[in-house]
Computed example of a mutant assay.
Amino acid sequence: MGMSPTSRRNRVRALTGLSALALAAAGFAAAPAAQANQPGSELAGHSHPYRHGAVPTKEAGQSATARTSNLKYGGGVDGIGVTTGAPKVYLIFWGSQWGTQGTDANGYTTLSGDPKGEAVRTQQLFKGLGTNNETWSGVMTQYCEGVATGATSCPSGSAHVGYPTGGALAGVWVDGSAAAPGQATGNQIATEAVKAAGHFGNTTAASNRNVQYVVLSPTGTHPDGFNTTGGNFCAWHDWNGDTTLTGGAASSPYGDVAFSNDPYVTDMGSSCGQNYVNSGSAGTLDGVTMVFGHEYSETITDQNPAGGWTDSTGYENADKCSWNGVGGTGGSQNVTFATGSFAMQGTWSNAVSGCQISHAIVQ
């Protein structure tokens, strides 16, 4: 593959732009599924080794060099390459700053310290994945594990990325036991994810095998330097055992725990995707769904970075299609799930060596 799993772990994957797909009731109403487009640019952010799939700000991503190489399998880390079962997403609203918890008419958790409404929008997104026979998730299902290191395709019968049938949202926890740190380290974020695994009763390696924990920090905080000088990213993902995390790896009695650092992205406005697809109030939360969808797609295709699928320079499936413009076969578009319409980005497809917003589900 040109790089060992260890050296790939020490590369940052730049995540940027993101698209929202226009799905018809049974799929995407946007570009034909058989087509793809090459990204005009791909982001390269190497400031920190552990920020896998890091979504750079839009400004940071615009100076990247084009790359068109396909993804290769990294051989697995701790025997884990991709998420092979139906993906499960647990949302952790970390910190007392989120305020008072309530429930809206649709059963979504609301929070008084959430001025932009990110909490409900995030729940809608993950509950909607895998509904309406959506094929945005289909792009990811072409990847697998159990193949040779360096492979660029998956034979019939291999263990493919699972499809989130009926929705990926598996649980919501508002951890208001203490204030979230003003600037959490990678270790603290990973530790919160491990704590959440215990909270949700996922206390074995098997119960965490197809799970990811989305650690959401409240407005005004700066997890890992988000929205500070030099913190020119919107989100990133990793696993608890990564020794390059700031503060070191986080121990887990529950097996490997995959997690993402999802800050309060609207604090950075258009730099993290606000109004990237939709204008006015309809686009206020574009960046929320594009950024969080980006990290979700990279976690299921590279669960323990970088044992899953990356290109020859270490970038993951969503990195290669970030900030790729709006519309077409691989740009950001509105995608309709059963829970609403969401701005989403295209992701890389080895099947066509380009970015796709839609691909037939591989099972």
Rank of each mutant, 00 (worst) to 15 (best):
Val82Gln: 07
Leu245Asp: 03
Gln35Ile: 04
Ala151Ser: 15
Trp323Tyr: 14
Phe342Cys: 07
Ser7Gly: 04
Cys154Phe: 01
Asp242Phe: 08
Trp309Met: 09
Gly314Tyr: 01
Thr266Trp: 08
Leu21Ala: 13
Ser279Phe: 05
Asp104Tyr: 00
Ser251Met: 04
Ser353Phe: 02
Gly247Ala: 09
Val288Phe: 01
Lys195Pro: 01
Thr191Glu: 06
His222Asn: 15
Lys116Asn: 14
Phe226Ala: 07
Ala360Glu: 13
Ala34Tyr: 10
Ala20Phe: 13
Asn187Cys: 08
Val172Phe: 03
Thr244Val: 10
Val211His: 00
Phe233Ala: 03
Thr339Gln: 15
Gly255Ser: 08
Asp302Ser: 13
Gly85Ile: 02
Gln188Asp: 07
Met140Asn: 10
His46Asn: 14
Ala205Arg: 11
Gln345Trp: 00
Asn304Ile: 11
Val174Ser: 05
Thr165Gly: 06
Ala343Thr: 14
Asn210Glu: 05
Thr109Asp: 13
Phe233His: 04
Gly269Pro: 10
Pro223Glu: 11
Asp256Trp: 08
Thr203Tyr: 00
Leu169Thr: 02
Asn210Pro: 01
Val139His: 01
Leu21Tyr: 05
Thr243Asp: 08
Ser270Arg: 11
Thr204Arg: 07
Ala249Asp: 05
Pro155Gln: 13
Thr109Trp: 06
Phe342Met: 08
Phe292Lys: 09
Ser217Ala: 15
Asp114Gly: 02
Phe292Gly: 07
Tyr50Ile: 02
